[in-house]
Every structure is written in structure tokens, then in C-alpha cells.
Amino acid sequence: MPARRIIPCLDVKNGRVVKGVQFRDHRDVGDIVENATRYSAEGADELVFYDITASPEGRSVDTGWIERVSRVIDIPFAVAGGIRDLATAGAVLDAGADKVSVNSPALARPDLIDELAAAFGAQCVVIGVDSMRGEGGYRVWRNTGDPDRADETVNHTLDWLREASDRGAGEVVLNCMKQDGVRDGYDCKHLAEVVEAVTVPVIASGGAGAPEHFRAAFEHGASGALAATVFHDRLIAIPDLKRQLLADGIEVRP
């Protein structure tokens, strides 16, 4: 395993970084490029930008800010939101993103994953999944950027992620919706089942509130841990977090 990655997640709405709780009540947390620069300088290993309005509203991500981010930061970043065809993914990568992350559009048309992997390589294709326990176990949700349109799909999370990685996804971001924004810790039991189910790297998302939550995610097999609230609100400083993880014997990039 390479060094475990600390990944701030920046939700983008109308060109600004925002943050909600359990996908609702978004508030403004600042300019995209300023946030990206700050996190890169503080030692973030990677960034993920979710255009949270793109998928529910049926429009594509705007590429202007992607190029501005790519020019200034020297760590990798993924872009998610509204990527539903090769042309849009190509435009996002051409603007300087390193990976595209697909969620609702891949549920609507799974062949999209094969097409993206064939065109750009598996290492460019991240499958994002919003998972919540329902009847009969964990199920995949879609259109979670808009509370009025979000709904549960028929897909069981583990089955869907096995299929997505077989189709060529090179990484999984597992977002546990119950945990989102509540700072109560990652759902490590679910995380461990997903790590067991696929051979690609798995990124934990949803619930980080304290340094020990990151450690727990890594001990349960996560290659990276994604968080928003604790970084945006400066509750955890990335250099302090990395020092703590190193002291606990977990390899991170110093």
C-alpha cells in the first residue's frame, strides 16, 4: 500500500465551495482556487471537487475553474458531478483534472464506466457511491446532490461496486450517507466489506470528526480518507493530523 491519503473534499455549487449536513443546508465556505491552494500547501495528498448541482440539474461541470485549479496546485485532483459522457470527461481532463468521478450517470448507464476506462485508463476513472443501509442491507442512492430528487436504487452497494470495478473503475469513493457531515466517524464495518469486495483502492467518505476516525478508516483498509467539514471549519489541521497518524504507525506522506 502506498502512503495513506488525506483528501479534502470540496463541494462546488454555482462556482463556490459549499458544505452541507447530510446533503442539505449548504453554506458558503469560500473561493475554489483559494481553498485548493490552501489545502495543497497544508499537505493534502489529493483533492476531490464535487459539483453537487450538476448531476441533479442535468448539466455538465463548468471547466473554467478546473483549469484555474490545475495551474496553481501540484497535487492530483478529481472532479465529479454531471460527467455522463466521454466528451464531458475529456473536457474535464483537458482542463487539467487528473481523474473523473462518476456516480448517478454510471448508475443510469453502466457502460459509461467501460467507455471512460477504455478512453482514459482505469486510473482516471473513480466510481463514487452514496450508500445507506436499507431493507436487505446497504443500497446505492442516486441524485444525492438534491434532497428533493435523491432516491434509493435497486443496487446493493457491494454488487454495484464489484460490477463497477470489473467494468474498469480504478478507484472507489465510498460515501456513507448517514455519516455525512455529522463528524461521528466513518462507517468502518461497511468500509471493510467494500475493501474485501474489490481489488481497487477504496477511499472512505462521510463522518470524519477526529484524528482517530482517520486512523480507524486506514486500519479497516482504506487507501485514503476524504473529509470536508473538519477541514473547512479548521477543526483538524492536516499537518497535525499527519503527525498524529505517523506517531500511530500509519504511513502518510510527511
Binding site: 500500500m1 502506498p2 502512503a3 491519503r5 495528498d45 481489488t199 481497487v200 477504496v202 487507501s223 485514503g224
Partner: peptide, 15 residues
């Protein structure tokens, strides 16, 4: 070759 504790792609920061 993927293995336990060795996902593929090799994705991330290595020394």
C-alpha cells in the same frame, strides 16, 4: 498483481 493490502491500480504517494 493485486493482493491483500496491495490494491491495483497502484494509486497514491510512495517513497
Amino acid at each position: 498483481e493485486p493482493g491483500p493490502d496491495r490494491p491495483v491500480p497502484h494509486m497514491g504517494w510512495s517513497a
